[in-house]
Design a binder for these strands. Structure first.
Lengths: 341, 341
DNA sequence: TCACAATTCGAAATCGATTTCGTTACAAAT
DNA sequence: ATTTGTAACGAAATCGATTTCGAATTGTGA
């Protein structure tokens, strides 16, 4: 069981390792003849250069680190899938790490990735990320940074997002058009831009349809879990404020809210109509099935890699480069929880 | 922005790189004095050795590849979590790849991991994996192989599984004790051991309780999706065979079956009682909520890494080594879908 | 005082691939 | 015939860390 190296191939063909390397890497100072011999032998031996050794010279690890806040969230699963599909074709390996929405963990993960000499870091920020030094460090290290979904407005890099504001608007408008006049909004933590934008969409829709915006009807949920949704909904109901619709920035909290409504004998969609966000797995199997906003995760993942590659290539060729921001449209999936009948 | 290397530290302290290396790696031929100087400076510079360069000599990449069949399956998410938590402490990085239950893809993934020179491969086999050459190759390459959940009986390695047979038995017994006399079994594809074992548990339970085992009541589902469960259940119902319970080897097919039952106006749990497998996310939110078998994924992940480390260490010290097989117990989660009332 | 052992350190080889630069051989140009 | 140019290849340095082996220094015992 011999290890197959450049040197081995060189010896077999009685030429120098440098020539073998050049033949395999498309240098021009190799004759067509020897090039063919090398390529053929390499293929037949199933040779591929040792990535670690190659890295020492090229500084390319062909590894990309992807940071996601959750793993159970199907949207992120789709994004990863999109990245994977694109990256695979170019021979990149993907390391997925999850931050659990924690800034501290996120910082550690980034350090880990930099130690591993990844070529790129794709990140969706944790909820409580307030400081961006760790991401500045990524750029300083010459590593390509791509932000997706939960991005920072301040930090420069290429970005891939959905139109959260418009999505919030559409969801709310849908509720209004189906007769809701008193719509509660479950918003996320105050910091992340997605949370702000979805909220603004909600608010704008109310204004456009001449409904009064009432801050008391905005429930801020920091944890975004079913339990939290259940708890907060119970609290809200106990305040006896009239409402006939809910737009939640997450399906998961919406599901908790649904449980609370059931407990209080409020019928969905008859008494209260509900729209969530992100189209979680099995939300179509609930009773009632949950209306939601669907984000094109796979396409977003594809785009992330595309922007990454563009940046890598311009760096190699030392071409000037401009950050891009791609905004994807979402689509509303209307199910039982917000239907008219 | 200078890169911090061994050489740099050596120059700073006016000693040789080799001495620095030895100081950091606990060699005995370094004086306590110089050792302290080196360690202190290294710490203050936040130095950590370049992993790729170190690999060239040590042949340790400190990377583990984990192959899972699905990503949306919460059980596997838990296993990965368990591996991650353990591996992190020892400075290992985890690459998670998913095979989509495809043998061809699985083979490619393994090749990819070997090219990356991972130290270990943890794998749960794809449904249709019939050939094991790619896994033999892992062992031949000197890479530690750990099999978990869907394992091969033939291939030698350390293994981490649950007692599938007993789990199938308990689930079926539970249905019997709650009054079921005609229990349908959704089994998975014929090949994987988990599929066989869960089926055998089902069969054994019937026999122990003097119920007739009827092959016609065993529905083989190759795809294990909700759609497939729905389709197969419809087919089965159209055959007009009496039944009052279902034990499904997967929650996902069980959910499809539930939809079919609803469509045919069969009440759960009144007319039919249902038990699934794996405790998928949100199965507790369904109406009725789904009874299921819970596997201790996190603990299994922990164990995988423990066995890996044991093997690595004995290889280093050239101690004799014996493969271990750890069998975990499952627990039945009884919810509405199989309750008496 | 001398022989020898223990301690501490450094020089150099090594891992495997890449890349610069120099050398050869031969053809074309003068 | 001599110079120039080009195609094709190889020698050697390099990336950053590890590790073997030998050298220098110090200490120990006879």
């Amino acid at each position: 069981m011999k290890k197959i190296t450049l040197k081995y191939i060189a010896k077999e063909l009685n030429i120098a390792p440098s020539t073998v390397s050049k033949a395999l890497n498309g240098y021009s100072d190799v004759s067509a003849n020897t090039k063919k011999k090398v390529v053929d032998l390499a293929k037949s031996l199933n040779f591929s250069p040792n990535t670690q050794a190659a890295f020492l010279r090229t500084r390319e690890s062909k590894i990309i680190g992807v940071v996601i806040p959750h793993i159970s969230h199907p949207f992120f699963v789709n994004v990863v899938k999109g990245i994977l599909d694109s990256a695979e074709k170019k021979g990149y390996l993907i390391i997925v790490l999850k931050s659990n929405e924690s800034y501290d963990l996120e910082k550690k993960l980034i350090e880990k990735l930099l130690k591993q000499n990844v070529d790129g870091v794709f990140i969706s920020l944790a909820q409580d990320t307030y400081d961006l030094k760790h991401l500045e460090a990524v750029k300083k290290a010459g590593v390509v940074l791509i932000q997706y979904d939960k991005i920072s407005k301040i930090l420069e890099s290429s970005k891939v997002v959905v139109d959260d504001r418009n999505s919030g608007y559409l969801a709310t408008e849908h509720l209004i058009k189906n007769g809701c006049r008193n719509i509660v909004h479950f918003r996320g933590p105050l910091l992340p831009q997605v949370s702000i934008d979805r909220f603004l969409g909600y608010k704008n829709a109310l204004e456009d349809y001449n409904l009064i915006f009432d801050p008391k009807k905005v429930i801020t949920s920091n944890k975004m879990t079913d339990k939290e949704g259940f708890r907060l909904m119970n609290d809200f109901i106990s305040k006896k404020i009239d409402f006939d619709g809910i737009f939640s920035m997450s399906d998961y909290t919406a599901i908790g809210a649904l449980e609370s409504l059931k407990k209080h004998n409020l019928l969905v969609p008859d008494d209260i109509k509900v729209v969530g966000f992100s189209n979680w797995l099995l939300t179509d199997k609930l009773t009632p099935s949950l209306s939601t906003v669907n984000q094109p995760g796979v396409l977003m993942g594809n785009k992330c890699f595309e922007l990454f590659l563009k940046e890598v290539n311009s760096k190699k060729k030392k071409i000037k480069f401009k950050y891009e921001k791609k905004i994807f449209k979402t689509n509303l999936i209307i199910r039982e929880s917000s239907s008219l009948k």
